[in-house]
Design a protein around this nucleic acid. Sequence first.
DNA 1: ACCGGGGCTGAGGCGGCGCTGAGAACGCCG
DNA 2: CGGCGTTCTCAGCGCCGCCTCAGCCCCGGT
Lengths: 215, 215
Amino acid sequence: MLVVDDERGLVDALRRGLTAEGFAVDVAYDGAAGLGLATDRDYDAIVLDVMLPRRNGYDVVTDLRAAGVTTPVLLLSAKDGEHDVADGLDVGADDYLTKPFSFVVLVARIRALLRRPPQVRPAVLAVGDLVLDPAARTVARAGEPVELTGRELALLEYLMRHADRVVGKVELRDHVWDGPGEDGNVVEVYVGYLRRKLGREAIATVRGAGYRVAG
Amino acid sequence: MLVVDDERGLVDALRRGLTAEGFAVDVAYDGAAGLGLATDRDYDAIVLDVMLPRRNGYDVVTDLRAAGVTTPVLLLSAKDGEHDVADGLDVGADDYLTKPFSFVVLVARIRALLRRPPQVRPAVLAVGDLVLDPAARTVARAGEPVELTGRELALLEYLMRHADRVVGKVELRDHVWDGPGEDGNVVEVYVGYLRRKLGREAIATVRGAGYRVAG
DNA sequence: ACCGGGGCTGAGGCGGCGCTGAGAACGCCG
DNA sequence: CGGCGTTCTCAGCGCCGCCTCAGCCCCGGT
């Protein structure tokens, strides 16, 4: 794994500790060097400080995700304001730990990250010319921003998360609405709403089976 | 998603807040009920308190993982000892948040969990220059996409699953249509439809025996 | 070459799926 | 309390996909 931090003492302690835990550790002491290594080599996980010389941690994560690198990233920071944490996660980091932290907890969180299926998704969903940002709750079609209501957004997000697959109406009811509930044609109505705002071709109907958004 | 906690006030606040964020929320007030729901239904994520009546959070996660349920779990607890956190993560939870917590951070962490890919898609059927994707319900001939109706697709799928073999009409009636049913020439009609869309050579006739699609 | 039967195809009816417009319930804000 | 936006129900309807039927074609056997 890769550890990026500018406090030499901390880095040394982490390297020794993580090595003892059985990890192979590379280190970098600033953002640019860390970004270079992370892009170059294929790590299993990255521990990344936020306050860094030459590109801060947020920038590094943003650039990594933009470059298609999906390696799990654990951010490390002294800043524990709720928006610091939320911003860090929303740019594409997978976990956030505030200094000072317990080494035991760090290792447990790293193990949790490594358990996850290898491919981690980018922070923003993109399918065809549709772009949806779950954190900002915004949607754009072919670069043009589109205003959606909450339910419309939830429906579109689920469809995009399962793009290139037919999604049944019952499945949509279960995940986008509450429980297996009543009958009715809510799903069809909301697909109609989305089509009016996004264009008819955005969502394909598969008669007798459900709907599909394709790349 | 599913929220499991025994403090009614907190649960209500979470349900309202998460619903406003566009999630569909189920709730349970004790461990056994939560485990039941989580096993039964297919949630996108679970928020789970550790201190619960009737099975604590650790037990619930352990049982879920043992049952093969891989839904992401975020543990919630007032206990912030380093070993509490590490234990929670090590039994299979994906994240751990200590009370009191910021709602903004909770939502950001949930979104980070949801970035996990939903599940791996098994495979597509390929015979000759025909490609059929059962999940997407799409068919392509020589790279060109072809639109098929439900019955046409079911018929083609059965033929492709038994490629390089002669498949009798009665067998097709039994498997693609319901029961041994009536007489008539449905099969021949639908083979005709397929040939019109895929090209005459796609399906060969074996006079007196049935049909065959070959590699 | 003739004839029988299995296979193909065009036309058509029917049932129901899915789309739409209108409007009722609800919460939020001023 | 009244307006607005969002969510959801309901009923109507168009059209698509499913299947039947009848006639023709073509293959194969004698």
